[in-house]
Design a protein around this nucleic acid. Sequence first.
DNA 1: CTTTTTCTGTTGGATAAGCGACAAAGGAGC
DNA 2: GCTCCTTTGTCGCTTATCCAACAGAAAAAG
Lengths: 192, 192
Amino acid sequence: MLTTLPEEKLDPRVKRTRQLVEQAFTQLIREKEFQSISVQDISERAEINRATFYAHFPDKYALLDYKIRQEFRAEIEKRTLNACHFSEDNLRALILTVCEFIGEANSHCKSPHGQFGPIVEAQVKEQIRDLLMTWLAQVESNVPSEILATAASWAIYGLAQYWNDQKDRVPVNEYVERILPLAIANLQLSRA
Amino acid sequence: MLTTLPEEKLDPRVKRTRQLVEQAFTQLIREKEFQSISVQDISERAEINRATFYAHFPDKYALLDYKIRQEFRAEIEKRTLNACHFSEDNLRALILTVCEFIGEANSHCKSPHGQFGPIVEAQVKEQIRDLLMTWLAQVESNVPSEILATAASWAIYGLAQYWNDQKDRVPVNEYVERILPLAIANLQLSRA
DNA sequence: CTTTTTCTGTTGGATAAGCGACAAAGGAGC
DNA sequence: GCTCCTTTGTCGCTTATCCAACAGAAAAAG
């Protein structure tokens, strides 16, 4: 689910430890390379037991996934418009968010041999897809919304990454305007 | 004990909740009157269960005691010299600390009908006594150190409060110098 | 005054977190 | 190759915290 109700009667204890783990990880990630961060490091920094970490996350990669999802979601919620309807403006904002998020991820989290990229990609695409699904739920079409959302999420992420990899970049806004019609067309295929 | 070893292999959970309770109380005490602060208020603010509060403190008065002790101890540790030996300089610093602490307590914690005073008095006197006991432990005398420390703690606190209640106060340092010989004499009675 | 509401301590049972200890896997140095 | 050391998941068992409920005290409302 994309809709965030961060506090709906959650056990205070799990709320606490999640928070502690998160902020410990946030601290460590800007000190060390992700690879060299151990679960023990996180547990010690968070002042929780190591076993407790595993009660919340299967491993440190799951925590990374969670962190990425959370931050991307925060961007979505900040700028606009999660859990609202499909519109040209919303789609534009979404694409813009993706472009900038990838840029941030590349610059801030300097991964040595780019093991970071695939993880970010998977999580962000998932988020995009979920969001598009909620938008399309209110629209009639003879193509299943999963199909449309999947295609569009891949396309949007691919285009955003393509832009980020360029040496001489067109301004973001200009680029977004250029690919926006394509994205719209993708989502409105075979409209009823 | 006055000697503080705040973290010696204490269960992380109790460390956490103590900290949460403390900072919740600290926040509330500068918003509300102590009387109008309920255990529920503290628990909610600290995001712990109310029953958990009672697992740590018998009631809110015990928490207040604890807070006062802790802050006075912090003053002692900051300025100087806990767990060290008896000397004129140390005693002077101690008396000065007491004078200023009472002043702070009176001004900052404006209690409506002075129910605060007796609590502060009890806790601070206890702390003074403990500290003097450790000092006297290294000194020979034919009078039990409990007796000497008790008398001196009452005398010092009484004189500090007396000074605070005056309308036209002599400068602190001057006042301290005046009563210092008296305190010294008290502690060195019947020296071996 | 009576009624209603809030707060207080306390209890029993459920659950999360803590604390070792363990075998296994990986890395560093020899 | 071989140690030595660290990290990793995982497992019982203990302990702290949670939660809902309770009766009684205190405060507010009527």
